[in-house]
């Protein structure tokens, strides 16, 4: 079998708690992702999805376990640039135009300027923003800001794209359009994606595999391959297999919420 692009072995993270006991956010996470796979991570609020994504990227250090990319163990944020991170709040620098925001990651790799410019323009075009190169973030809508956010992460040509609830702050309609856009962009780039979301239907629509985390401390509760053909569109949401999977995942999450002490305790 080929070496997986990403492998998490027994990964855990805990922080200092109120008492003597440490506060365990998640532990015992084992996950293998193959090259080009789109994996979504869903789970009840506060199960550590976002933290897990930050640990994978090296922004936070794990308390236990190992992370392998292409079989090579990773050592935090000082390592090589192998992953692109798409932030929940877009995190666009307000003093930079769209083009210069996309260039940020390329500047870090000391690429020569005309080359980098062409790359940045290419990815802005890919996300449908050609013509908006010289716009500042405050001149863009929420959906457009997320497009720049995505283009910026893609521009460094990462092995793995980590997406942290990128559509959470968008209105329902824009969100649906952005999901379709992501399907299109993914089919054109075929990146390996780890996608964190609250929204089960979003996870199923986009992914090859949906991973369900348990309530805190987060563990992998279950994994489901998505048995739906690509290319997909919104109509697939009424497919019997889609609806069944959505119900199954929802029941699991409901159980987790109950086990956590009910919705009010989240």
């Amino acid at each position: 079998m080929a070496i997986p692009i990403l492998e998490l072995r027994n990964l855990g993270r805990e922080v200092a708690g109120r008492g003597a006991e440490p506060f365990v956010i998640f532990n015992g996470i084992n996950l293998t992702v193959r090259d080009g796979e789109f994996v979504s991570i869903v789970g009840p609020s506060g199960c550590g999805k976002t933290t897990l994504l930050r640990v994978i990227n090296g922004l936070l250090s794990p308390s236990a376990g190992q992370i392998f990319v292409d079989g090579k163990e990773q050592n935090g944020a000082d390592g090589e640039l192998l992953m692109g991170f798409v932030f929940q709040g877009a995190a666009l620098l307000p003093w930079r135009t769209s083009l210069n925001n996309v260039l940020l990651g390329l500047e870090g790799r000391k690429k020569n300027t005309p080359d980098a410019q062409a790359i940045a323009r290419k990815y802005l075009d890919l996300v449908g923003l050609s013509g908006f190169e010289q716009h500042y973030p405050h001149e863009l809508s929420g959906g457009m800001q997320q497009r720049v956010n995505l283009a910026r992460a893609l521009a460094v040509d990462p092995k793995i794209l980590l997406m942290d609830e990128p559509f959470a702050s968008l209105d329902a309609q824009t969100r649906s359009f952005m999901q379709l856009e992501l399907l299109r962009i993914w089919s054109q780039t075929r990146k390996t994606v780890i996608f964190v979301t609250h929204m089960i239907s979003e996870a199923i629509l986009l992914s090859d595999r949906v991973v369900v985390l348990s309530h805190r401390p987060g563990r992998i509760r279950s994994e489901f391959p998505v048995p739906l053909p690509r290319p997909r569109d919104m109509e697939i949401k009424s497919d019997r297999r889609f609806v069944e999977l959505e119900n199954t995942v929802w029941k699991l999450i409901e159980e987790e919420v109950k086990a956590a002490g009910g919705f009010a305790k989240l």
Partner: peptide, 28 residues
């Protein structure tokens, strides 16, 4: 913004680049 600092780290920018490209312009 904490996300700006994470952004720099996710791109593996040096501490110097973090200062010049993120912290300084954000402080202006």
């Amino acid at each position: 913004n904490r996300e700006f600092v994470e952004l720099a780290r996710s791109f593996r920018l040096t501490r110097l680049a973090l200062f010049w490209k993120i912290l300084l312009p954000a402080s202006v």
